[in-house]
Design a protein around this nucleic acid. Sequence first.
DNA 1: TCCAGAAACTTGAACGATCCAATCCTGCCT
DNA 2: AGGCAGGATTGGATCGTTCAAGTTTCTGGA
Lengths: 329, 329
Amino acid sequence: MAEKVTIATVARHARVSRQTVSNVLNSPHIVRQETRQRVQDAIDALGYRANQAARQMRTGRSRLIAARIDPTRDGINGSVLDRFLHGLTETADAAGYRVLLYTATDDAREIATYGDLLGTYELDAFVLVGTKYGDPRTEWLADRDVPFVTFGRPWDALDAHPWVDVDGAAGTAQATRRLLDTGHRRIAFIGWPDGSGVGDDRRAGWRESLRAADVDPSGLHRETEDGIAEGERLMRDLLDAVAPTAVVCASDSLALGALQAIRGTDQNVSVIGFDDTPVAAAVGLTSVSQPLGDAAARCVDLLTGVLDGDHETPDPVLLQPSLALRHTA
Amino acid sequence: MAEKVTIATVARHARVSRQTVSNVLNSPHIVRQETRQRVQDAIDALGYRANQAARQMRTGRSRLIAARIDPTRDGINGSVLDRFLHGLTETADAAGYRVLLYTATDDAREIATYGDLLGTYELDAFVLVGTKYGDPRTEWLADRDVPFVTFGRPWDALDAHPWVDVDGAAGTAQATRRLLDTGHRRIAFIGWPDGSGVGDDRRAGWRESLRAADVDPSGLHRETEDGIAEGERLMRDLLDAVAPTAVVCASDSLALGALQAIRGTDQNVSVIGFDDTPVAAAVGLTSVSQPLGDAAARCVDLLTGVLDGDHETPDPVLLQPSLALRHTA
DNA sequence: TCCAGAAACTTGAACGATCCAATCCTGCCT
DNA sequence: AGGCAGGATTGGATCGTTCAAGTTTCTGGA
């Protein structure tokens, strides 16, 4: 069993002091080229790797980023998180950070977990997925000057923090325009009740696009909690009430329900969902696709900016979604 | 800004030495009840949390477990990992461990990542999801005495390591028996090519159940790479060739394809998938459901056994799946 | 040749916890 | 009363790294 290779081992091997080895690693420019090479060779030869715990003890930085993994509520829209996490791990890795997982069942517990993670692991930053009006989590973190990014806008716009989001309104607008372009006029919308930032945003994209095309959107939309059964119910209602020729949905779950409602009748109604989940791909549902890998990468960018660089709050990032065309629209 | 609370702060506050505080945390039984209480009160009052980096430096243990997050191949079967990871995070947390994510595109890179994680973060253990014949990863880890568990059996049975798995054969057997019980006889199977441990296992469950019911399985099965399109293609083939009245599939992707093939015809064929993914729930597909949360918990159990306890290799765990009945069978 | 000043490198201390060995009590037995 | 066993407590050393301050080496100009 080979004994542990520390910075002292490398120093001995390269006939320099510990500090010089440390400098080669952290501020290479202040070490003479020749020495630097000698140290580097020793590092390679011995397979030395800096011990993160020791480094952390001195610098107070863990190079660890926390992200929450959810219990996959309905499973369909949950897969968004899965893809985001993968992107996050990949880009964080490239930037020299690693992703630590945590779970929590409610906001209070989540905040307690923050305290724990910060206290025992000295986490460098948090990535929060999803935000809501008056989110207590962002407030807690901001109060303590803990670096964090949210994937999702701060809907109250109270205090500014770095965020990355996908332009939901642009997504539904794109979907609606696509339907208008293919000749539809009575284009309905199935979404979520007033008050959720994300839901209101997605509805707005649909509404404005209709208005821009001189179509009156009133009466053409329905709101409900998310879910397949709910989507089916509301679609039935819409078919009876206004007989739309197309429908834009705020989620793939709702869209899937709508598809089932339509299958019952003999009408030909176009359907577009949101999130481009695996289910959408599976059943051939046209859906608004979020650039999740990109979003994750931008989150890491913002964080490293805050962590390694200046104290300025970096500009938020709003990404554009695209339409994954399949055979339902 | 409050200054950092260390073990010395607590000691001063409780009028004891640092060592006593450490004992209260690590070996409470050797401290007198009264003193222990006084120290505990100080800890609570000050909100002290042991610094993991410092502890790790002395003990060499990070209380970190690594798990890989994949790029969600086809997205449908990938969601299994998602649910497993959540379970893992939850139970690891309860056992005082945290889950660190990593990614890798191939075995060589994954092994390189092991070296990196072990060297810089001194990871305590790895959880590998999925194993194959002659897996180089398990060999590498075993050679270096790195604790690890696999979710998935070692198919070569070369060297024994702790593992947790779900009995796939039992799952397909259960599915097949269900179909036999409801009157089916010509029950087909769509699975993966020979040579994948998981695939062969699932096929075996179907075959043995048919044989036990005196049905000849020959000609009733087809093999292909995973995927919806492939499932559809093979189901068409089966319908033409042997006109089965039911089919058991090795994955929900294949089952979904089979459903699409059947929808084209007017035949009434029962379909059962495997993995009980969100998609299955969405389209009402009966599917074999793996107890993922349970599996994750058992993985943590095995690991903590190895880490905190004895040096014996713990007995592997084989969990039984259940059938999620929906309206396709 | 000499010296100032910069560049390159070295040394001792510190981060916060645990381990080890030594000391201090306390109560009990003779 | 004295001695002793045993548990409870203490101070010092240590893990591997970086920071701060010190020392040596190099360079170039008078």
